[in-house]
Design a protein around this nucleic acid. Sequence first.
DNA 1: CTATTTTTGAACTATTTGGTACGATATTTG
DNA 2: CAAATATCGTACCAAATAGTTCAAAAATAG
Lengths: 210, 210
Amino acid sequence: MTQSTARTRGRPRSFDEGQALEKATLVFRSKGYDGATIDDLVAGMGVGRPSLYAIFGDKRTIFLRALRAYAEAKGALATTALLEPRSLRDSLAGFLRHAVVTATEEGSAPGCLIICVAPLVDDAEVRQFLQDVSASTAALVERRFRDGISAGELPSDFPVATRASQLVDLGRGLTMRAQMGAPRETLLKDAEEAADLVLLPQRGDATSEG
Amino acid sequence: MTQSTARTRGRPRSFDEGQALEKATLVFRSKGYDGATIDDLVAGMGVGRPSLYAIFGDKRTIFLRALRAYAEAKGALATTALLEPRSLRDSLAGFLRHAVVTATEEGSAPGCLIICVAPLVDDAEVRQFLQDVSASTAALVERRFRDGISAGELPSDFPVATRASQLVDLGRGLTMRAQMGAPRETLLKDAEEAADLVLLPQRGDATSEG
DNA sequence: CTATTTTTGAACTATTTGGTACGATATTTG
DNA sequence: CAAATATCGTACCAAATAGTTCAAAAATAG
């Protein structure tokens, strides 16, 4: 779909580059980084071995590309959940719900490439990327809290940074439990309760409900 | 120390079985399960290759033994933190502090064998063990909450199961951040704030402080 | 239809890895 | 000191793995 009419010379590829990367993500999610062999990727991506090296590079490069694509998709989902116009509680719950849903997708191994797999990869570039993703995710939640203060959904002294970090940590916990086999229903319920938790009013808090 | 006087025939071992298992834990924590080769274990445990197989078995068996020993040690720490006589808030904060401290120990790779490494191991026995550990950890926190209700530290309608699960999830989040390189100081601060969060009074809650 | 270009599939090589065999070594027993 | 026993270190083998080579296939350009 990206450039279907841009006809190029030579034998056409038998696969779509983006789809192949998505399939690589599935392989890494189910086997981990070290556990995934080149043969696993060849089988899972539907790409011949020489083409794999020619077009995607070695395993490390494939993983980095899959990770970036995965983070972009997941980040877009999170941004939508948090920044679309809806109540603050729904924004937070939606953010966590998306995390749970992608971590418990049918047909793919439970878990998350960013949270469960990538942290174990011994690579400076991966580490840096994870720190960036982590920071920007927390910043996104924090921004939603600030918007909530502006909109009068939260008191002005709401501890935005602390609560943002905590919400993200709760999401990590949910995702790890998904990886460990917890059922989606349980996690979805807990996602709601996690959203409620971080919105509990402080002592001496004067916020009122609508 | 376990049986120093129980002299046995033949050449004595050049290593201590328990210490070797601890070193195996370090290897798995730093390289992951699939990432750790037998040679890594041989080098890291200080045990010759044939002795490794003769005494500990193959990699899977070594991992299971290391995991059980690690869980027992960590469980004892958690039990102490939660069940020793101290204030409820200190119990919870202590529980999280211990998790942070072991996950950021100097001289070993950051992270936790149970939370960061084991969930990626594709093995039914490991999965079952993780579920058991997870359940008993949450049950331990829940018990501390119940004790708190009995002691008047909490209102009788405190949602013990929900808050226990959330505290454990927050701990998972802290541990994952340790794995990702977050500094101990930051995590220790966040541990305190996580303990405070789960103890925030509910709406219409009449609990008072001492 | 021929030449050119690009991908594909099979086979190949070198390296790493898991697991084992065997002689040397260190200790207890008599 | 000699026999028995258990561990240690080196070396070895088979299987798996990473990465490459090369001819056949499939498309376009002239």
